[in-house]
Simulated assay, not measured.
Amino acid sequence: MSILLLDVDGTLIDSLPGIRAGFLHTLDQLGWPHPDEEFQRRIAGPPMEVTLRSLGMSPAQAQAGLQVYLDYTRRGGWADATSFPGMLDLVHRWKDAGLTIATATSKGEGFARLILEREGFLPHLDFIGAAQEDGPRRSKSAVIDHVLSTNGWAADSHDILMVGDRSHDITGAAAHGIDTVAVSWGYGTPEEWATAAHTAHTPQALEGIVHDWLAARG
Protein backbone atom coordinates (compact mmCIF):
# COMPACT_ATOMS: atom_id res chain seq x y z
CA MET A 1 0.00 0.00 0.00
CA SER A 2 1.30 3.44 -1.00
CA ILE A 3 0.15 6.24 1.29
CA LEU A 4 0.27 9.99 0.78
CA LEU A 5 -0.08 12.29 3.78
CA LEU A 6 -1.21 15.73 2.66
CA ASP A 7 -0.95 18.98 4.55
CA VAL A 8 -3.97 21.24 4.02
CA ASP A 9 -3.12 24.91 4.66
CA GLY A 10 -0.57 26.00 2.07
CA THR A 11 -0.67 22.69 0.19
CA LEU A 12 -4.25 21.95 -0.83
CA ILE A 13 -5.92 25.13 0.39
CA ASP A 14 -4.95 28.81 0.27
CA SER A 15 -6.27 29.62 3.73
CA LEU A 16 -4.04 32.59 4.57
CA PRO A 17 -6.76 35.27 4.10
CA GLY A 18 -8.99 33.76 6.77
CA ILE A 19 -6.13 32.81 9.09
CA ARG A 20 -4.64 36.30 8.85
CA ALA A 21 -7.98 37.97 9.56
CA GLY A 22 -8.53 35.73 12.58
CA PHE A 23 -4.99 36.30 13.80
CA LEU A 24 -5.27 40.10 13.61
CA HIS A 25 -8.70 39.99 15.28
CA THR A 26 -7.15 37.95 18.09
CA LEU A 27 -4.33 40.44 18.59
CA ASP A 28 -6.81 43.32 18.65
CA GLN A 29 -8.93 41.55 21.27
CA LEU A 30 -5.83 40.99 23.41
CA GLY A 31 -4.52 44.52 22.88
CA TRP A 32 -1.37 43.14 21.25
CA PRO A 33 0.46 45.07 18.48
CA HIS A 34 0.42 43.70 14.95
CA PRO A 35 3.70 42.20 13.67
CA ASP A 36 5.11 43.19 10.29
CA GLU A 37 3.85 41.89 6.95
CA GLU A 38 6.64 39.35 6.62
CA PHE A 39 5.60 37.73 9.91
CA GLN A 40 1.94 37.72 8.88
CA ARG A 41 2.74 35.88 5.64
CA ARG A 42 4.22 33.00 7.66
CA ILE A 43 1.41 32.37 10.16
CA ALA A 44 -0.48 29.73 8.15
CA GLY A 45 0.52 26.21 9.10
CA PRO A 46 1.76 26.05 12.70
CA PRO A 47 -0.74 25.80 15.57
CA MET A 48 -2.01 29.29 16.40
CA GLU A 49 -0.85 29.11 20.02
CA VAL A 50 2.70 28.46 18.78
CA THR A 51 2.50 31.56 16.58
CA LEU A 52 1.18 33.64 19.48
CA ARG A 53 3.95 32.39 21.78
CA SER A 54 6.51 33.42 19.15
CA LEU A 55 5.30 37.02 19.58
CA GLY A 56 6.32 36.88 23.23
CA MET A 57 3.02 35.91 24.80
CA SER A 58 3.00 33.80 27.94
CA PRO A 59 1.45 30.31 27.74
CA ALA A 60 -1.69 31.63 29.43
CA GLN A 61 -1.98 34.57 27.02
CA ALA A 62 -1.44 32.29 24.02
CA GLN A 63 -4.15 29.90 25.23
CA ALA A 64 -6.54 32.81 25.73
CA GLY A 65 -5.67 34.00 22.24
CA LEU A 66 -6.30 30.55 20.82
CA GLN A 67 -9.85 30.61 22.19
CA VAL A 68 -10.48 34.02 20.59
CA TYR A 69 -9.11 32.72 17.28
CA LEU A 70 -11.19 29.53 17.39
CA ASP A 71 -14.33 31.52 18.12
CA TYR A 72 -13.63 33.78 15.12
CA THR A 73 -13.03 30.76 12.92
CA ARG A 74 -16.22 29.03 14.06
CA ARG A 75 -18.22 32.15 13.23
CA GLY A 76 -17.22 31.90 9.57
CA GLY A 77 -13.51 32.62 9.33
CA TRP A 78 -12.88 29.05 8.14
CA ALA A 79 -14.69 29.83 4.86
CA ASP A 80 -12.25 32.56 3.75
CA ALA A 81 -10.12 30.10 1.76
CA THR A 82 -9.90 28.52 -1.70
CA SER A 83 -8.16 25.50 -3.20
CA PHE A 84 -4.87 25.98 -5.03
CA PRO A 85 -5.29 25.59 -8.81
CA GLY A 86 -4.65 22.07 -10.02
CA MET A 87 -4.59 20.35 -6.64
CA LEU A 88 -8.12 18.93 -6.65
CA ASP A 89 -7.55 17.33 -10.06
CA LEU A 90 -4.21 15.93 -8.88
CA VAL A 91 -5.70 14.39 -5.73
CA HIS A 92 -8.46 12.90 -7.89
CA ARG A 93 -5.88 11.30 -10.22
CA TRP A 94 -3.90 9.91 -7.28
CA LYS A 95 -7.04 8.33 -5.89
CA ASP A 96 -7.96 6.85 -9.26
CA ALA A 97 -4.43 5.40 -9.46
CA GLY A 98 -5.05 3.47 -6.26
CA LEU A 99 -3.08 5.53 -3.73
CA THR A 100 -4.29 5.77 -0.14
CA ILE A 101 -4.63 9.44 0.74
CA ALA A 102 -4.95 11.04 4.17
CA THR A 103 -4.56 14.56 5.43
CA ALA A 104 -2.10 15.46 8.18
CA THR A 105 -2.95 19.02 9.08
CA SER A 106 -2.51 21.29 12.08
CA LYS A 107 -5.91 22.74 11.20
CA GLY A 108 -8.69 21.79 13.59
CA GLU A 109 -10.53 18.69 12.43
CA GLY A 110 -13.95 20.32 12.14
CA PHE A 111 -12.63 23.26 10.16
CA ALA A 112 -10.53 21.00 7.92
CA ARG A 113 -13.52 18.82 7.09
CA LEU A 114 -15.72 21.84 6.28
CA ILE A 115 -13.30 23.42 3.81
CA LEU A 116 -12.23 20.12 2.24
CA GLU A 117 -15.87 19.21 1.66
CA ARG A 118 -16.75 22.59 0.18
CA GLU A 119 -13.74 22.54 -2.15
CA GLY A 120 -14.46 19.00 -3.36
CA PHE A 121 -11.55 17.08 -1.80
CA LEU A 122 -13.48 14.99 0.71
CA PRO A 123 -14.64 12.17 -1.63
CA HIS A 124 -11.02 11.49 -2.63
CA LEU A 125 -9.62 11.21 0.89
CA ASP A 126 -9.43 7.97 2.87
CA PHE A 127 -8.88 9.63 6.24
CA ILE A 128 -9.00 13.15 7.69
CA GLY A 129 -6.00 13.49 9.98
CA ALA A 130 -6.15 16.81 11.79
CA ALA A 131 -5.39 18.57 15.03
CA GLN A 132 -7.86 18.77 17.87
CA GLU A 133 -9.40 22.22 17.96
CA ASP A 134 -9.02 22.37 21.73
CA GLY A 135 -7.06 19.34 22.91
CA PRO A 136 -3.59 17.84 23.21
CA ARG A 137 -3.23 16.72 19.57
CA ARG A 138 -1.81 19.96 18.19
CA SER A 139 1.69 19.42 16.73
CA LYS A 140 2.27 17.97 13.25
CA SER A 141 4.14 15.02 14.74
CA ALA A 142 1.17 14.28 17.02
CA VAL A 143 -1.24 14.52 14.08
CA ILE A 144 0.86 12.10 12.02
CA ASP A 145 1.06 9.72 14.98
CA HIS A 146 -2.76 9.87 15.20
CA VAL A 147 -3.11 9.10 11.48
CA LEU A 148 -0.72 6.15 11.65
CA SER A 149 -2.03 4.63 14.87
CA THR A 150 -5.71 5.02 13.99
CA ASN A 151 -5.26 3.28 10.65
CA GLY A 152 -2.72 0.70 11.79
CA TRP A 153 -0.12 2.00 9.32
CA ALA A 154 3.56 1.38 10.04
CA ALA A 155 5.78 4.45 9.85
CA ASP A 156 7.93 3.26 6.93
CA SER A 157 9.42 5.88 4.64
CA HIS A 158 9.24 3.41 1.72
CA ASP A 159 5.44 3.22 1.99
CA ILE A 160 4.46 6.72 3.11
CA LEU A 161 5.27 10.15 1.68
CA MET A 162 4.34 13.51 3.22
CA VAL A 163 3.46 16.55 1.11
CA GLY A 164 3.58 19.95 2.82
CA ASP A 165 4.85 23.49 2.60
CA ARG A 166 6.40 24.38 5.98
CA SER A 167 9.27 23.21 8.16
CA HIS A 168 6.90 21.71 10.74
CA ASP A 169 5.56 19.39 8.01
CA ILE A 170 9.09 18.22 7.29
CA THR A 171 10.22 17.80 10.90
CA GLY A 172 6.90 16.25 11.94
CA ALA A 173 7.18 13.63 9.22
CA ALA A 174 10.89 13.05 9.89
CA ALA A 175 10.04 12.20 13.52
CA HIS A 176 8.31 9.13 12.08
CA GLY A 177 10.96 8.32 9.47
CA ILE A 178 8.85 9.71 6.62
CA ASP A 179 10.23 11.81 3.75
CA THR A 180 8.52 15.03 2.66
CA VAL A 181 7.94 16.79 -0.64
CA ALA A 182 7.90 20.54 0.02
CA VAL A 183 5.61 22.59 -2.23
CA SER A 184 6.64 26.15 -3.00
CA TRP A 185 3.16 27.61 -3.66
CA GLY A 186 2.41 27.60 0.06
CA TYR A 187 3.81 29.72 2.86
CA GLY A 188 7.29 28.34 3.47
CA THR A 189 10.72 29.66 2.51
CA PRO A 190 13.54 28.22 0.39
CA GLU A 191 15.42 27.54 3.62
CA GLU A 192 12.51 25.39 4.86
CA TRP A 193 12.12 23.54 1.55
CA ALA A 194 15.83 22.73 1.49
CA THR A 195 15.34 20.38 4.44
CA ALA A 196 12.82 18.24 2.53
CA ALA A 197 13.69 15.23 0.38
CA HIS A 198 12.16 16.94 -2.68
CA THR A 199 10.73 20.33 -3.66
CA ALA A 200 7.89 20.84 -6.15
CA HIS A 201 7.22 24.25 -7.68
CA THR A 202 4.03 23.26 -9.53
CA PRO A 203 1.35 20.58 -9.13
CA GLN A 204 2.69 19.02 -12.33
CA ALA A 205 6.15 18.74 -10.79
CA LEU A 206 4.62 17.27 -7.64
CA GLU A 207 2.82 14.64 -9.73
CA GLY A 208 6.13 13.73 -11.34
CA ILE A 209 7.90 13.39 -7.99
CA VAL A 210 5.17 11.12 -6.64
CA HIS A 211 5.26 9.08 -9.86
CA ASP A 212 9.02 8.59 -9.51
CA TRP A 213 8.63 7.69 -5.83
CA LEU A 214 6.11 5.01 -6.74
CA ALA A 215 8.33 3.69 -9.52
CA ALA A 216 11.33 3.48 -7.19
CA ARG A 217 9.27 1.35 -4.82
CA GLY A 218 8.62 -1.09 -7.67
Rank of each mutant, 00 (worst) to 15 (best):
R137T: 09
L6D: 03
A112Q: 03
H176S: 12
M48E: 00
G76E: 08
D36E: 01
F121C: 07
L27A: 06
E191P: 09
Q132T: 10
I128R: 01
H198L: 15
L161A: 08
A60S: 11
D7H: 08
R166L: 02
P17D: 10
H34N: 14
G56F: 10
L70W: 11
G31E: 10
F23E: 02
T11L: 08
M57D: 05
F23P: 01
E191C: 08
I3G: 10
A142D: 12
Q61W: 02
G45I: 00
R75A: 12
F111L: 13
R118M: 05
G188D: 01
W193H: 12
A194P: 09
A216W: 12
T195E: 13
P85M: 09
I128M: 02
V163N: 12
P123K: 10
I209Q: 08
D7F: 07
L116R: 05
T73V: 15
L5M: 08
T202W: 07
Y72G: 04
G65E: 00
G56K: 11
Y187W: 09
I3F: 12
G86A: 09
R74E: 15
G177S: 14
S15L: 01
W78L: 01
T51N: 10
G186I: 01
L122E: 13
D212V: 14
H25S: 15
W94G: 00
G45F: 00
V163F: 13
A131F: 01
P136K: 03
T82S: 14
H168R: 03
A64R: 13
D134A: 06
Q63S: 11
F39D: 02
G86N: 08
A112N: 00
L27Q: 04
R137P: 05
D126I: 01
R53Y: 07
Y69P: 06
P59F: 06
V143G: 03
L66M: 09
W193G: 04
R166M: 00
S54V: 02
